[in-house]
Write a protein that binds this DNA or RNA. Structure first.
Length: 242
DNA sequence: AAAACTCTCAACCGCTGGTCC
DNA sequence: TGGACCAGCGGTTGAGAGTTT
């Protein structure tokens, strides 16, 4: 039920993901986070576009993604949310822990569509096109229904999105919840050192350097002059530490 | 048994909005 | 101000699985 793997014009792989690719992507993100989806496949050693990696992670590999049958409660909630939000699948996913927007969308189209009332947008179209139809059709007109309210918490992020600080926490091997800001060399040094020896590394254009500079952890000239001076910086820090 | 048809869902595509320079 | 770049979103596709004829 998956697309046959193939290569696009840029030599990037398309179609179904292999277990090996899944493992690479999972291992990379769990270790370093998804700091830049476009660059990520290059660093992770994957011949995929960033978009494809993001989708695979968000919909399949991400921790806590719930798979399998939907409960009656989940079905009812989707129907209610559809009544209220229409096709805002990502907003629905925020209300259904473990379910992704893609999954909810698929489930809607395959299972719930026939049971549901028209979305607010559809209702408008239907109302216009059926304005001359019989009264029994109009009796269930969505315009007469009262939508229940599902306010979104202001602080809530979109489904699966991770704040930049949390990305950093993953990258730096830190506790996501405990660390709000990385402000010491110690918290960066070890994971960075590991990073350079990781098998994933295919390129030296590591984008976190700019952040090290921005946070005044690393002087800017190290950043601009590349790996040799970066290593020199590491040595200097070691010397200071001793 | 096998051809035709339908269902399902992972993955792709194109667009939009936000951010940065 | 506007162009480039990026993440994220919703719609759509396509192929394997399941069902019907």
């Amino acid at each position: 039920m998956v697309r046959t793997p193939c290569l696009d014009k840029n030599g990037l792989k398309k179609g179904a993901w292999s277990k090996e690719e899944d493992d690479k992507l999972r291992a990379y993100i769990q270790r370093f986070g998804h700091w830049n989806w476009r660059q990520l496949p290059k660093f992770a050693g994957l011949r995929r576009c960033g978009k494809s990696c993001r989708l695979r992670w968000m919909n399949y590999l991400r921790p806590n993604v719930k798979r399998g049958n939907y409960s009656k409660e989940e079905e009812d909630l989707i129907l209610k949310l559809y009544d209220d939000l229409g096709t805002k699948w990502s907003a629905m996913a925020e209300k259904l822990p473990g379910r992704t927007d893609n999954e909810i969308k698929n489930y809607w189209h395959t299972h719930l569509k026939k049971r549901a009332k028209p979305s607010p947008q559809e209702a408008q179209v239907i109302e216009q096109s059926t304005s001359d139809t019989s009264p029994e059709n109009l009796s269930d007109s969505p315009s007469q229904q009262t939508s229940e309210s599902y306010p979104l918490p202001a602080e809530q992020t979109s489904s699966g999105s991770i704040s930049s600080y949390c990305d950093y926490a993953v990258f730096a091997g830190l506790n996501w919840a405990a660390e709000d800001r990385i402000n010491s060399f110690e918290s960066f040094y070890e994971p960075i050192q590991n990073f350079w020896t990781e098998p994933f590394l295919l390129d030296t254009s590591f984008n976190h350097w700019s952040d090290l500079v921005e946070r005044e952890i690393m002087p800017s000239y190290y950043y601009y002059d590349g790996i040799e001076l970066f290593n020199q910086w590491i040595q200097e820090m070691e010397a200071i530490d001793m």
